[in-house]
């Protein structure tokens, strides 16, 4: 018997709550039924959610920085999904989850769609917090640096929550597809490791997102290929607690 969720067309907005709830029946059906329109729809939702989040993140430093971040953030997410698509598709059967390349790509895209929906929903809250922060000013160097660090940590926290939500649902799906708890966990872990490795480096290259107070507003830094994400995160923690 077909449930109302399963009968949803590929471009129906109603798919998003179903994805968020992690309803296994319809999601498994959608994964099995590859359609370009569905992939495009998930990509569009991912772009919309991450772009909204990016826009508010960069808005404190400068409205233009917000626009830059709104362009870069969705690109990183989509490039991570596409860049690891081949690897994820190969790892899944090797680790006991028997799905095709297309299905693995769609599953990863679904988890990114969930994360993007969470980030998009958090965007008004983040904007409210940023609107309440003192406006950026070169004269307030110390305060500006602290606010920048708080926004940066907020970005990491929001992404952690969104990523967790997306991956919990992905694990449920993999568990159902493979029928094996161990295989599902192994596959998820491998996918996560690969996505984190590529995603963090892409994010590092595409900086700035929030926009450091002492550096100019720009689409990419001239030294885009220097340093790494974890080093920067540690520096921001030190800035807050010093």
């Amino acid at each position: 018997m077909t449930t109302p969720s399963q009968a949803l067309p590929p471009l129906a907005l109603g798919q998003i709550p179903t994805l968020l709830r992690g309803e296994p029946g319809p999601i498994q059906l959608w994964i099995g039924d590859w359609r370009a329109s569905r992939v495009l729809f998930y990509a569009a939702v991912t772009v919309a959610g991450t772009a909204a989040f990016g826009l508010v993140l960069g808005a404190w430093r400068d409205p233009m920085q917000g626009v830059y971040t709104a362009i870069k953030f969705p690109l990183i997410v989509l490039l991570t999904a596409l860049g690891n698509g081949l690897l994820n598709g190969m790892l899944a059967p090797l680790l006991g989850t028997n799905i095709s390349f297309r299905q693995s790509l769609l599953a990863v895209l679904m988890s990114f769609t969930i994360a993007a929906a969470v980030l998009g929903a958090c965007a008004p809250l983040i904007y409210f917090a940023i609107w309440n922060a003192p406006k950026f000013s070169g004269a307030l160097a110390g305060t500006a640096l602290t606010i920048h660090s708080v926004i940066y940590l907020g970005l990491v926290a929001a992404m952690a929550v969104a990523g967790l939500a997306g991956n919990v649902r992905l694990l449920q799906l993999l568990r159902r597809i493979s029928g094996n708890e161990g295989a599902a966990r192994r596959t998820l872990f491998a996918w996560l490791a690969g996505n984190l490795f590529l995603g963090s480096q892409l994010a590092w290259m595409a900086r700035p997102f929030v926009g450091a107070p002492h550096l100019p507003v720009e689409f990419l830094r001239p030294n885009a290929l220097e340093g790494n994400f974890y080093e920067s995160f540690w520096q921001h923690l030190q800035q807050i607690f010093q």
Partner: peptide, 15 residues
């Protein structure tokens, strides 16, 4: 209004 989208998304995540 600011909090409404997050409540909806959280409620969906809660099933």
């Amino acid at each position: 209004l600011i909090c409404l989208p997050s409540l909806y998304i959280f409620s969906c995540l809660a099933g």
